[in-house]
Nucleic acid binder design. Structure first.
Length: 568
RNA sequence: CGGGGCGUAGCGCAGCCUGGUAGCGCACCUGCCUUGGGCGCAGGGGGUCGGAGGUUCAAAUCCUCUCGCCCCGACCA
């Protein structure tokens, strides 16, 4: 492709609206342009990268027996009403009516359509198992699109669905996907972790997320460098490091005007880890007190799994149920008749603490959980870096990550309501057991860039690069430079090596800067300087290495380099 | 949806506080020049200041409403 003819607008400066590295670079290098919040145009260069990703996905999906189909973006509301998600999902679903006032949905995912199709076309156990997939547009009315292509309202997704006879079959399909996903992300040159995840609204028996580490990520994963434990912090268990407590006696201490943990610690000159944070929460069965150590945070999702929906109590409710103002709340010495259920974090199992005294202006020192109050113990804190790994006790690291893929065991959540049934060997009607599996190609691109760039621009992995070679003649007005560049461009094309040929009349500096910004793995510079010696210069973007290669050997040099670095 | 920020030329920004009829850099066009790291010189085109309403002799500037975009949080099959 000739640069002079290509829609490839590059920017010298960072766009004002971009924060994430990948977002800045994708705009500057001319991969994408934003139409509106969460809506992106892929320019020719960006589309080339996207197609590379999709080709890898297709190869690996086909390799596990996946069959590609395309389902509509526009769905009749009925199937979503049958699955119940018409009612469960709120504003995130785009809804509209057709001209006859029939309710319609813009698909945010395709479980319903797959179950509908299976209900018609799968009849016998002989028809199973099946894996169907598509690479297709999804629409979600996101509350807050962000991070460039990382979270958008319209995006491409590879979604696949497995249909099996029984849970054992599902396990096999699930594992096939797990392995295929590992291959896909590896081939795309992305560093990732497969972590256990919360099945959430998808329901079902198990789930993993594939997480690419990046500061631009919206998720956090808890990682153990020792045993390989990896989990989304939404589920991650951990043991916060213990602190040895002073041999306090059980006594009330005055803490005037000290309400927050910070204030109390400053006043008493103690470590926050020696305090108990008491939170009054309103659950559906009434008020509950949650206790976490002063340095810890309550994990709302973990807590919700224990007690169902809840919300923090209002000021007046604290007063009503605990008989004291927020700030002096504690598990010990609640007034008679005010027996609140207590749920305490596991980090409070051992130790002697300071807690609110349920009396204005006072705290109690020397509180021993289990002795001075009875509570149900559970892991309800947010895992933090430095906590001990739940399986090997080594220190954990918590890092930000981009969710590039996920896999779910659905079970019969969709097949039952949509009547996706089959007849087994005994002629019995059984529900198909389903799994659902997603990959965000745009997120792979963003993650690859987040993990591979420098101050000059993108450093594309060979597997995703829009072109293999950046052919850069320094001065086309010099006849030999022009001739050799054209000749070499021709040779590359005959050898089926894709090249971006910078045939512009720009100054050398401009061309070099653009080459670095776009980040194609190999740059071939053709100039009078090296042509005198019948040489061309080959620069490797990744390492910065520069090789001078004989003109007539340059093509095979490039071919060898590409073959050697291609991931299988 | 709560909190914060920003909308002025294609891009990045100044001007706004203290109203007086819009400016800088890059990009773009023409000519000359230059060709190993975002060349040089000369000439030129382009905005009515997100939108609406108001105050005023006069509004990019002050006031009200509104729309859009970004960030933090909530939310996130």
């Amino acid at each position: 492709m000739r640069f002079s003819k290509m829609l490839l607008p590059t920017y010298k400066e960072d766009p004002a609206e971009a924060e994430a590295i990948s977002h800045k670079l994708m705009i500057r290098a001319g991969l994408v342009r934003q139409l509106a919040a969460g809506l992106y145009i892929y320019l020719p260069l960006g589309l080339r990268v996207l197609k590379k990703v999709n080709a890898i996905i297709r190869e690996e999906m086909n390799a596990i027996g996946g069959q590609e189909i395309i389902m509509p973006v526009l769905h009749p509301a009925e199937i979503w009403q049958q699955s119940g998600r018409w009612y469960d999902i709120g504003d995130e679903m785009f809804r509209l009516q057709d001209r006859t006032k029939r309710d319609m949905v813009l698909g945010m995912t395709h479980e319903e359509v797959v179950a509908w199709l299976a209900s018609r076309e799968i009849r016998s156990y002989r028809d199973l198992p099946q894996i169907w997939y598509q690479i297709q547009t999804k629409l979600r009315d996101e509350a807050r699109p962000k991070g460039g292509v990382l979270r958008t309202r319209e995006f491409l997704m590879k979604d696949s669905y497995s249909l099996d006879l029984d849970p054992e079959g599902l396990n096999l399909s699930y594992n096939l996907h797990y392995d295929a996903y590992c291959k896909i992300f590896h081939r795309c040159g992305v560093k990732y972790y497969a972590v256990e995840s919360d099945p959430g609204m998808m329901g079902g028996a198990g789930a993993h997320e594939f997480m690419a580490l990046s500061p631009a990520g919206e998720d956090e994963v808890s990682l153990c460098g020792n045993c390989g434990y990896a989990a989304n912090v939404e589920l991650a268990n951990s043991q916060p490091p213990l602190v040895s407590s002073p041999a306090w006696n059980f006594e009330e201490v005055a803490t005037p005007e000290s309400r927050t943990i910070e204030e109390v610690c400053a006043y008493l000159k103690i470590d926050p880890r020696l305090t108990i944070k008491s939170l009054l929460l309103m659950a559906k069965d009434g008020p509950i007190m949650a206790l976490v150590r002063g340095d810890q945070k309550l994990h709302e999702k973990k807590f919700r799994r224990l007690v169902g929906e809840f919300r923090p109590a209002h000021q007046e409710e604290v007063k009503e149920h605990a008989g004291v103002e927020a700030g002096f709340l504690g598990p010990v010495g609640l007034a008679p008749g005010r027996n609140l259920p207590l749920i305490a974090d596991v980090s409070l199992k051992q130790g002697i603490f300071v807690a609110g005294a349920n009396r204005e202006g006072y705290h109690i020192r020397g509180v021993v959980p289990g002795e001075h109050f009875a509570a149900k113990f559970a892991d309800i804190h947010v895992a933090m870096s430095g906590d001990a790994c739940p399986s090997c006790n080594s220190p954990l690291k918590v890092e930000k990550a981009i969710e590039i893929g996920n896999i779910f065991k659905l079970g019969t959540k969709y097949s039952l309501p949509l009547k996706a049934l089959y007849l087994d060997r005994q002629g019995q009607e059984k529900p198909i057991v389903m799994g659902s599996y997603g990959i965000g190609p745009a997120r792979i691109i963003a993650a690859a860039i987040e993990q591979s760039f420098d101050q000059d621009g993108i450093i594309f992995p060979l597997s995703l690069t829009p072109f293999d070679v950046h052919l850069l003649p320094v001065n086309l007005k010099q006849e030999n430079v022009q001739q050799e560049a054209e000749k070499f461009y021709q040779k590359l094309s005959e050898a089926d090596i894709s090249a971006l040929f910078d045939d512009r009349a720009e100054a050398p500096g401009v061309k070099f800067k653009d080459a670095d910004l776009i980040g194609i793995p190999l740059r071939l510079t053709i100039s009078a300087k090296t042509l005198k010696e019948h040489m061309v210069e080959i620069k490797i973007r990744q390492t910065g290495e520069v090789h001078l290669v004989k003109l007539d050997q340059a093509l095979s040099w490039v071919q060898n380099w590409i073959n050697f670095h291609t991931k299988k």
